[in-house]
Design a protein around this nucleic acid. Structure first.
Lengths: 138, 138
DNA sequence: CATATTTGTAACCTTTGTAGTTACAAATAG
DNA sequence: CTATTTGTAACTACAAAGGTTACAAATATG
């Protein structure tokens, strides 16, 4: 239903940062993700706006975490990126229809609950967990 | 994150059917949803494949439910449409990287849990509930 | 200061998915 | 037979995403 790899890439990048003492460049993150450095910068900018990471331009620059990995929950990462909700409502149902006129409000409520269900499940994991899981698969 | 109104439209259409004794045509459903009848037929075809509705061509034809509305959970409706999961994984992380090589498996597990959280929340509602909620907003 | 490195960002292209639309065949009721 | 309705292919328009290039601005180092 959805195609937007930014969330997956964000987790990937944050996990790389959690595993590294030194800052990582967009270039090196892009290499592990297998994409273009600009794609990484664009995405990391959202994480930076929410205070999860910091960037430093120039020689020996790059990205680093601003918080311990066990304090970065996946629901928070998700919220850095999610402009809209996962489920979306059709825009202009017929307001003259007794059902069409009311359905949007009902769907908003129900889809909101679904969103909470999704984010609660994500919130049970942190970047530290993910790193641990990755390492356990060695 | 997502744009695909089919789930919302499916719920809308099923609610219309639940509220009607007689079969409804794609035309009349499309009118309440405010879209083209072909869009409705395409979407209803998925619901038919999963045994939720039945269609009859020809004069006095149309769509009707094959099950009582209180026995149609929203999670099931969702599953009729969801080809992919809500959260999607980036396709080709670098397998030579110690993290890139393992991240897909880890994300599959975590995203699967998130999907379950979403569907569980949806599963607490049925088409009968939705119709009731709509009517309560009169 | 000069240079190499790295982020920041705008601009553009391509691909993909979705909704919308037209057209017409096939089925069905009366 | 005729009007109605689904089934489906084919096409268009549009938007979002990822990828790419180009270049300005910032920074560490010698």
């Amino acid at each position: 239903m959805n195609t937007n790899q930014r969330f997956a890439i964000s987790i990937h990048a944050l996990t790389l940062l959690a595993a590294s003492k030194d800052p990582l460049t967009s270039e090196s993150i892009a290499s592990s993700v297998d994409t273009n450095p600009v794609v990484i910068r664009r995405m990391m900018a959202s994480l930076r706006e929410h205070g999860l990471v910091k960037s430093k331009p120039g020689a020996h620059g790059g990205w680093r975490l601003l918080r311990e990995p066990q304090k970065i929950g996946l629901s928070e990462v998700y919220q850095c990126l999610s402009e809209d909700d996962v489920l979306s409502i059709h825009s202009h149902p017929n307001k003259n229809c007794p059902i069409g006129g009311k359905i949007k409000g009902v769907l908003q409520k129900v889809f909101g609950e679904a969103q909470v269900g999704l984010e609660n499940a994500l919130g049970t994991h942190t970047i530290a967990d993910i790193l641990e899981d990755v390492r356990a698969r060695a």
